[in-house]
Amino acid sequence: MNDIVVSSRVRLARNYDDLPFPHKMTPEQGDACVVRTLEALRDVPESYRFIPMKNEGDMEKKALVEGHLISPDLLLRKEGAALIRSDGAVSIMINEEDHLRIQAFAPGENLQAAAENAFRVEEALAGRLNFAFDGQLGYLTACPTNIGTGMRASMMVHLPMLTLFKQMGKVNQVAAKLGLTIRGIYGEGSEARGNLYQISNQVTLGRTEREISEAVSAVARQLTEMERTFRERTLEKDSVGFLDQMFRSYGLLSNARRMQEKEFMAHWSNLRLGAAMGKLPVTTALCDELLTKGQSAQVQQAAGKPLTNREIDEKRSDLLRRALTGGE
């Protein structure tokens, strides 16, 4: 399924039972929330990088958002902080909408691995601190849309053909009936840059964590089947045209000297499509790595200094050329 599913993620919302929710906290309470979280995690074997939002540079923060390690919302929180595990597979946002947002990531279709990671962190914290919990409503969160399990399970899926054949509206309706939502990840509004979408559960109460994961997986499987059918059909109908489209993008990404993010995302989609169908000499893993590394703030951060937009576009194409051709 990794021809279509790019990555899996599980997010848990938790709140300490003795502090008001972040938007009602005093700065002192906000700091206390950060301190107790750090102390509770002191003895875990994994190492975390601690990133208080107020001390972090704009470029670094943006790069974290692009990597989906933190949310754009966290940037606006004065007492906001993040803990990023050294392997990048877990991030804990402190003082976002809830006291804690524990996120775990896994490449490809692997919600189970992500969930196991997230719950291991949650249990380490719960062993030392009390989370707000109600027998009827489950884990209590600032917004009632997250109560119960406090869990959001999601998968990033690449659906170029379903997008091209205008199937996303239909797909959305089906998902909504199952208590799930599908939306574009990159780009704003209805635009889904790179034809990348996120499927996630909307309902958090009254279902077990397993049921939630299974519902998301089931829809991802269904989408995978649909997308594959459209890919095969297109290949049957006009294989030269289809291959031409993939190879053109491959050619551009391997040779361009200055490429803007929007253009990169459009060609990236064709590159991954070709990789997933075994038509291009590239792995999907490399495509997924380039997806993150090719985002503007990531390019800038890799350079280690502020760059102009034009320089970013040049560095981006350098990165792509090196990755795809091995040359300079």
Partner: peptide, 30 residues
């Protein structure tokens, strides 16, 4: 947005129909 965990207790009567509408169910199962 609610202010604290206790708000769920204080506003339970008002929140329950709302939660049932949004979440479809009103009993935690996880």
């Amino acid at each position: 947005m609610l202010g604290c965990a206790e708000c769920y207790q204080a506003f339970r009567a008002q929140l329950t129909p709302l939660i049932t509408k949004v979440q479809g169910r009103a009993q935690h199962a996880g």
